[in-house]
Amino acid sequence: MKLPFTGTADYISTPELNQAVSCALALGRPLLVKGEPGTGKTVLAQAIAKALGRPLHKWHIKSTSQAQDGLYTYDVVARLNDSRFGGGDVHNIRHYIRTGPLGTALSRDEESVVLVDEIDKADPEFPNDLLRELDEMAFTIAELDEIVTAKKRPLVIITSNAEKELPDAFLRRCVFHFLEFPNADRMQEIVRVHHPQLDEGLVDAAMKRFFELRHRRGLRKRPSTSELVDWLTVLAHHGASPDLVAAGLPYAGSLLKDESDLSSFVN
């Protein structure tokens, strides 16, 4: 079977991930991507949008985010202000309706990709508030008494750091993919994509140190892919030699982000 997404030049994919994307597209279901921080969940959405040639609408979730924010907001304060002090067409509510990332994707005629980033940051009830919208790919603007239905179902990609459990009803509607931490071979490919020019010896030495650290017991925050990539950038910038990396852990601060991890390593 021909898959619509098989990774891009700067995103290394896996067969399972390609299949999950294809499945989400075929069924019109949201794709829920879960994984350790730093395993490239957000970058994945960009890569998929690029590979499919669709625009990407990003919705970054905060602890205060409400489901409504992603659909539309009604700027009632601006209208109140206009009605009191003049300016703007206060009689046309439409002027004060602003669509959010999901709302924008649903109301446009083109095929798009919507990224709902870090859904687990929000209130535990948040996903439940989006059930109907994600099922029907439609939403109601109560102020206008209008239902907006997507003409082309967007591919919704939802990421989660597993900070909170997501509700079952929500999970049932998603295609689920767990981004495993890359093994050494895949990591090598990923590093090559980000640092094509880097000296082979340095990369090998750094990777060796990195996986040793990952397997070290008692670390509070294990370094992830993005930290390895950053660390290599720092090493390259300072012109560190493979021997230096093999002997110690230069510029450990870009790899270990927890104070006690860092101090336990220094001592």
């Binding site: 399972e16 294809s22 499945c23 999970l171």
Partner: peptide, 20 residues
């Protein structure tokens, strides 16, 4: 979406299991 046992494994994995 499913052409062989490998794909069945992959599709089942992403549709039937919602937690690692």
């Amino acid at each position: 979406q499913v052409g062989n046992l490998h794909e069945l494994y992959g599709i089942g994995l992403c549709l039937l299991v919602k937690s690692e």
